[in-house]
Structures are given as C-alpha cells and as structure tokens.
Design a protein around this nucleic acid. Structure first.
Lengths: 192, 192
DNA sequence: GCGGTTGGCTAACTGTATTAGCTTATAGCT
DNA sequence: AGCTATAAGCTAATACAGTTAGCCAACCGC
C-alpha cells in the first residue's frame, strides 16, 4: 500500500481550507483525516493535537493576512491607506472565515512566534495610521480602535448579525470614513 | 429521597452563572449537573439540549443586558448618551463574559423571540443615536458602526487581545469619543 | 539489497452529549 | 387521609470526538 505522503505543512493547509468551509468550531480530526485520505490517528504523526492544529492554522493565517494587508497598503497614505487596509481586511476575512477565527485567539505569553506575527500585523496598522499625527499612547488607542471596529464588523457580519437589508458594503464604507473623520478631529484631551 | 426541586428557569440561571465562570465553551452538561446537584441526564427534563441551553442563556442575557443599557441611558442624550451606552455595554460584558458570548450568535430567521430581543437592544441604540441627525439608511450604518466597535473592543479585550500595557479604560474612552467626533462630522456623501 | 526511520493502521480508552426506560416523590383531587 | 397521574430524578447504554499504544510496512540512505 503506498503512503499518502503527508507532511505537517500539508495537514495544516488542508485544515485551514476545511476550517474555512465548516467553521473553526466544525473542524474535527475525523473530518480532516477523511479530507487528506488518512485514518484519524495518523494525523497525530504530523500534528500534536487539535488545539495545536488550530494554533498552527492561526499562525499561518496571520502570515497570509499580514501579507495581504501589507500589499494592499503599499504606496498609500492617510485616508487612502486606511481605506485600503480596511477593505483588504474585510475581503480577507470574508474569503477565509475559518482561518480568521483561528487568528483571533491571543497568543500565549510564551508563544514567541505568535507574538511576533501579531506584532507584525500591528506594525502595518501603525504605519497606516502614522499620517494622522498621533503621539505615543494615542497611537495605541487609535490602533485598538481601528482593530476593534474592523474585527467587530467582520465578526458580526460572518455571524449573520446584521439583520437589516441595508447594503453591508455601504455600511462598511461609512464605518471606515467615519473612523477617519474621528481620527482627524482634534484630540479633546491629549493628556489622557 | 427528596427531589432537587429544579425548574427550567433555575437551570438556565445556573448555566448562565457557570458560563460566566468557565466560559461559554467550557459550559458542559456534567459541570452544570454537578452545580445544581443532579445527575447529568436529569438536566434533560428541563432543557432540550446543550445547544438549546446556550440559546436560552443568550435570550435571558439579551434581556438583562438590554435592561442595563436602557437604565444607563435614561435622561441622557447626544454624546452623553453614547458614553453612557458604551460604558454600560463594556461593564456588562466584563461582568458577564459567558452570557455575552451567548448573546452574540445571531438568532435563526425563525427564532421569533430571539429576533424580537435583538431588535429591542437595537432600538435603544437608535434612540441613543437619534440626536445626531442621521437620516434613514445612515442611522443603520451608524448603529452598525457603534455596535461593531463596541463588540469588537469587548471581544478582543476578553480574549486578552490587547498586548500593550496602555490602560484599556483610556483606550475605550478614546474609542467612544472618537466615534462621537466621527458621527458629528459632516457626511461626505449623504446619498450613498 | 538492507536497515533504520517514520507514516499509516487497528484497537482501545476517555470524556461529553444524548436516549431509553425504570422508580418514586409530589401535587392535586376526592 | 388516601389515590393517582405527572414529572423529576436515577441507572444503563449508545454515539461520537480526541487521544494513546503498539504493530507493520513503505521509504530513504547506505
């Protein structure tokens, strides 16, 4: 009997695809084994556990998403860059809901690779916001705000949380535009 | 042997408490049974399934959270009301993480009670935003924006997603203030 | 070709949700 | 008070997901 010829990377890639199809919560060892043409226990030759698999999918996804975001923002600045960042973010999340869910869980304090990748995405966001003259802690506040808004919108959208028929693209565009308007308005209390 | 004297409402309430302690994902029939002093299968006399239990917890939580939000906003308007709404929102989420997680899943299209309760919370938000002169679809856009931002912030916070030591309360205050500034700025394209 | 390495398998165990079917406490009626 | 029907609780058993142990054979390097 010939072997399936798996490698950890292939298992993780297949897991990421499967997670996009059935949701991160629906990703199961049995399903993944069937997908890659192998019996369930064989997966453990490539992956430590389901939890470790999810973490690996998350790491890989952070890389992919970071690349997509960085590519979308090259050569742009100010409001233009924020729109490019936000649009690329949402496009990526909609295209890869399972992977995205895997990126959300914060890395453990001792997870160096996870922390590093999270920081890389954050650096892109800081660069995008650099044109708004935000100083020190305010830059962190602004990054948290943008990330919260984009994450919240994407996660509500993928949960089907928007009931009204109002066009979701337009709502998103309004969100980003209004965020930018807020970023531009004078800081009411720069010392806070 | 005397009976435990349970009722569905008591089981749901205990489940909500337990979910706040161990997380919605950690809520298990066995754990809940132990908590209410009964063997696992006995719970099925009061609840249809774990999934139904989660849904019931979510419904109850929507009621409680809606009450908290409405109470926080009485007699306020404009920026004041938005701050009150946002602060009450975050306080409630931090105090009841498990319950909040149960409220997030969008109700099924045929889940009348769920849809009704979701709508009630939305109405509070519309009332809070009524002072900003938003017309028609723009009111929906604005409500989606505020909800996305608050939900995103709360969910990232409770996932431990904010790495920096920067004070989270201040970031939240900045978020709300900046959102308000954005709401006040002129609509760049009122026809969109 | 030969031998170690390692991917894959079957069998078995654990924990969780759930169902079936029995027993009996208890509420309500007479 | 006694009778009865309902329903709360129990034990036993099933199904399925994750995981471990231990065997076997395909492949890689010599």
């Amino acid at each position: 009997m010939p072997r399936a010829g798996l490698a950890p990377a292939a298992v993780i890639a297949a897991g990421a695809e499967l997670a996009d199809e059935v949701g991160l919560a629906g990703l199961t060892m049995g399903l993944l084994a069937e997908r890659v043409g192998v019996r369930t226990p064989s997966l453990y030759k490539h992956v430590d556990s389901l939890d470790a698999l999810r973490r690996s999918i998350g790491l890989q996804a952070k890389r992919e998403m970071g690349d997509a975001l960085a590519r979308a923002c090259v050569g742009r600045s100010g409001a233009d860059a924020v729109h490019a960042f936000a649009d690329a973010w949402r496009r990526w999340v909609v295209a890869h809901p399972g992977r995205y869910a895997a990126t959300v869980r914060a890395p453990a304090p001792d997870d160096e690779e996870g922390l590093l990748l999270a920081d890389e995405v954050l650096q892109i966001l800081f660069a995008v916001l650099s044109g708004f003259g935000l100083e020190g802690p305010r830059a962190i506040d602004a990054a948290r705000m943008v990330r919260s808004a984009l994450h919240g919108f994407a996660s509500l959208e993928s949960d089907g949380g928007f009931g009204f028929p109002r066009d979701i693209d337009r709502s998103y565009h309004y969100l980003v535009t209004t965020l930018i308007a807020g970023l531009r308005s004078p800081d009411p209390d720069p010392d806070a």
